[in-house]
Design a protein around this nucleic acid. Structure first.
Lengths: 266, 266
DNA sequence: AGCAGTTCAATCATCAGACAAATGAGTTTC
DNA sequence: GAAACTCATTTGTCTGATGATTGAACTGCT
């Protein structure tokens, strides 16, 4: 066993603390299915040897994973992987680990279904309950989108900002959290749906329609405008799915696997 | 009121490990606003003195809270409470802490709005995509409700089971997690909405209608049936809110505060 | 004064080692 | 055969020490 020291060569991963890296690696393994629900993780001492860290670091990682519902620890038993329905799938990290394991087409479909349930109603509520300040933020987000039509990265940021601003204006405390989950999911979708300038120019006026409906406080019109936008998105996904665009998702998977291997090399 | 009352929940709490109790207490304090976003927690050594536990236990608690997005720890800085929009409000624990801090009437309204967005569509999807096995579970849950009409506690369990069974049958991986969040919220609502036998007898046939629609795979009918049920629930909430029923929520708040005080006595 | 670079100190991060508590499984006892 | 007991394993908790990070104070120069 050649003790190849992991030097702070690559800043991205090595900036994180040890327990964070362990948690991330274990979490990914669990979600991916390396440790299946009901299975036991190696005990803390063994884990420490595997990851070449102290028991303390392992324990802190385990605590994070148990806080996310992935595992449960008990004396004499060990750390057992919880059934999937106990997982906090709406947690940022869990979700991101999960995204790398599922089929892209199905993933996109499920996300769109959820958006179709929440966003139109949220927009309708926003039209009714928005404050002046909330509307300003929606407007600013729209402006940012318009300014970023030529810049894919900036567009993505502005797009997410727009949708979140609408959800925030709904006046329902529980909608923005849902929205932030969707946001994580969107990050994976956008790379497909707005990759082409043509698509961005197509959906910009649809966003404007939402903005306008909320401005004049017409709930029904806002709901319909969002529905229309989502339908367009859906169409883009369907078309993209038939082409090689799903390759992006696969590339994501592969890189995740590779990174993981580099760390734990078990 | 002497503090001699031993509730089963209390016993459950005292069985928990130290780091768990600390995490629970700190989490509740943060969500309640004792430590506001941007504020710093006492450093680990001080926390250890406050709670009379070792730094290890404090650290493990802190890791759990940071996994839930409530705080972030950095060397030289300390543990800073994150802005509310970083909180994982859809986490079981965070949600339960949160529930004790908000106004009941508003809380109930927001939850109903969310249910109105998700459950009808989920039922429609269930009608289209359900497997035979999933339908059996829905049927079993309904039967359990019917059998438990006279028993409030058993009814609540069966009621949640029914709704979750429907969500599970939707075929969308992301809906059951949303459902489990709603389930936590429901636990707080049910105590109000089904407190009376009369209410239970009123909503039982509404559940049957949902079951039937899913059985014969009529999406629209399923959607409408769920809407009707939720409207009835809404009406009950509105009526209850005008009476003294919201007192229950207040009682919950008080007991939570008391319990917390007993533990940390800061 | 104003700025850049350096030093310092507070705090978390990590480690090592020990003992306590919980509990499943095997063993004994009746 | 069932209940009680013992034992071994694993997590839970504590202690004390050292490393790493980084905001803030300090220093020296222009």
């Amino acid at each position: 066993m050649a003790g190849t020291k992991r030097k702070p060569a690559d800043k991205g991963a090595s900036r994180k603390s040890l327990y964070n890296k362990v948690a991330h690696d274990l979490g990914q393994r669990i979600v991916r299915g390396d440790y299946k629900p009901g299975a036991l993780l190696p005990n803390e001492a063994e884990c420490g040897q595997i990851y070449k860290v102290s028991r303390t670091a392992i324990r802190e990682a385990v605590k994070m994973l148990s806080a996310k519902g992935l595992i449960q620890s008990r004396p004499k038993i060990g750390s057992r992987v919880e059934p999937r329905n106990a997982w906090n799938l709406l947690d940022r990290d869990v979700l991101s680990w999960y995204c790398t394991t599922v089929d892209f087409q199905r993933f996109a479909n499920d996300v769109q279904q959820i958006r179709m349930m929440i966003e139109p109603e949220a927009a309708a509520l926003a039209a009714l309950h928005r404050t002046a300040g909330q509307f300003v933020e929606i407007e600013a987000a729209y402006q940012a989108m318009a300014d970023a039509v030529g810049d894919e990265a900036a567009w993505n940021v502005a797009d997410v900002r727009f949708h979140l601003a609408v959800l925030n204006a709904s006046g329902n405390e529980f909608i923005p959290p849902f929205g932030r989950v969707i946001e994580s999911l969107l990050a994976n979708l956008f790379s497909v749906t707005v990759a082409h300038l043509r698509n961005r120019m197509k959906v910009l006026p649809l966003h404007l329609a939402i903005l306008e409906a909320i401005r004049v406080k017409k709930a029904d019109r806002a709901r319909d405008a969002v529905r229309k936008l989502l339908q367009t998105t859906q169409k883009t996904i369907d078309e993209g799915g038939k082409l090689g665009l799903s390759g992006k998702a696969k590339a994501r998977k592969a890189s995740a696997k590779q990174k993981d291997k580099a760390f734990s090399k078990v």
